[in-house]
Design a protein around this nucleic acid. Structure first.
Lengths: 282, 282
DNA sequence: AAGTGGTCTAGACCACTTT
DNA sequence: AAGTGGTCTAGACCACTTC
């Protein structure tokens, strides 16, 4: 259990954790700390960042590896502090950031939990279409099509795949209060979503991201959307029960899991006759 | 300089600051702490929240009152700790939250500054329209119209004014790289923006929110947007050089200053032929 | 050298939940 | 009563900036 105090922290080569290396903030002045005494651990190159950032990275690794699964309780701050040989305050700061990024949820008196899409409070985090009047409702989904195809060039590029790699293609309609409002196409990396069929999609109750995380071990944590206004083509017009040419919102989403890995491309057409896309600028 | 230790903090009635009252977290169990010993200070009703939240509220008050103006340096953490009679760590946590909300900006070695819209890094915080290709450019503005009118009912409602109150109405076109892309209408409370003329708008270099904060003392800190797809009407089609009926993004924004006070209504029509509205979901 | 924010620790106590 | 996260304090030292 040897550790080395160095600058303002510890260099750890403890058992259950990876390398935690104490050092300056990685910027210039590479003079000091010449050969990092990372010890006999695995040879991952040291991180050179504040201790709490290293702890945060280690916790994230455990989340990614599935050591703690969505919805589960993670070890207490005291336990983690002992495990990583740092103070509770340092663990706390690491978890603070993870909570701010919605990777975990703290519950006073109970502990810290891995966050999950299978939870009422998460359902509207990535569904920004709100009714102009009244309270938000859960959509009814109708699966139109599910098939495995070879990724078109554009899809492959956005999903960071090779053109021609297998992808799962899904098309569905979402209706609010009986009104078809969204027609959505999805492309998922085939390798991650083996065995995804229309049946499983239809059977699953709850948001699709919940299915992805509990059945396929892929947890979506972040996304970027590009939004445009486009005219309804014939197909969309029929699905959404509007005239061809009617302006629709087009949202092109790329979703990412741990490590900023793209795991979903989604293109939605939204009818904004009775709904709007809500965005908070802050 | 009397202070009262109570539960885990201090109850302050110090000079330069308002009442800081230590207590439980305001929720149930109203049994304890019956008559709060706030001392002989002003009679503002106590806050019942963590100390650092109270400190945060006090700092926010100083920001709102203009004691520290946008771009200026605020007192150091050590100074503020002395002023409020709390530890530096508590001030630090308060400022952490203010920084997370973009009300202040920390600069290591220099100090903490009141954030401002007159700053390169802030220019795109509320301008979400990005070019499909190439890097973002600053728009060229063309003021079409500025006038004072009586607020229509809808405008009054969203700005929390009385119907018929004076508002400043502004209409402008924004062009990127010579391409007119946004036609925007704004409504501002007349009382806050006395003396706002087309000349001052045209003369001012930089974002409009910069003008608002430096010339009218109104700093925008947060906004909500409702986005829809709409067909271009005749006027918009002419301004944006598109056919009538072309789908456009319609963004209706309500902006807020300190204390969640609405201070701007803005309705923009965006041509998304070569641009998109970028949104990060997290 | 002095001042500022940034990191890390250690210890105390509070509030909430479960046993 | 015990365990968890939440708050607050005090002190040390690091990193960056300015004088």
């Amino acid at each position: 259990m040897s550790y080395i105090r160095q600058l303002y922290g510890f260099a750890l080569t403890g058992r259950p954790c990876a390398n935690v290396v104490k050092s300056r903030s990685m910027s210039q002045s590479a003079n000091n700390n010449p050969s990092n005494p990372a010890g006999p651990g695995a040879g991952a190159s040291p991180t050179f960042s504040p201790l709490y950032q290293q702890i945060k990275a280690l916790i994230t690794q455990s989340l990614q590896s599935g050591e703690w699964k969505p919805g589960e309780l993670i070890p207490s701050e005291v336990e983690l502090a002992a495990r990583f040989k740092v103070s509770q305050g340092t663990v706390r700061k690491a978890i603070d950031e993870l909570a701010a990024e919605n990777l975990v949820v703290r519950r006073q008196g109970k502990g810290t939990f891995v966050s999950t899409h299978n939870e009422e409070r998460a359902h509207f985090r990535f569904l920004r279409l709100m009714p102009d009047e009244g309270v938000p409702h859960h959509p009814d989904n109708r699966i139109i099509e599910v098939k495995r195809i070879r990724a078109p060039a554009e899809v492959a590029r956005l999903l960071e795949l090779k053109s021609g790699d297998a992808v799962v293609y899904i098309k569905r309609i979402m209706a609010f209060e009986g009104q078809p409002t969204i027609v959505e196409e999805l492309w998922l990396p085939g390798q991650l979503f083996k065995g995804l069929t229309a049946e499983r999609l239809v059977e699953y109750k709850g948001p699709m991201y919940g299915l992805f995380e509990s059945e396929f071990g892929t947890r979506m944590i972040r996304a970027t959307e590009k939004i445009r206004a486009v005219p309804a083509d014939a197909a969309a017009a029929q699905y959404l029960n509007v005239d061809e040419g009617t302006p629709l919102l087009c949202a092109e989403r790329v979703s990412f899991t741990y490590g900023d890995k793209a795991v979903e491309l989604r293109r939605g057409l939204y009818s904004t006759a009775q709904h709007h896309y809500l965005n908070e600028l802050s």
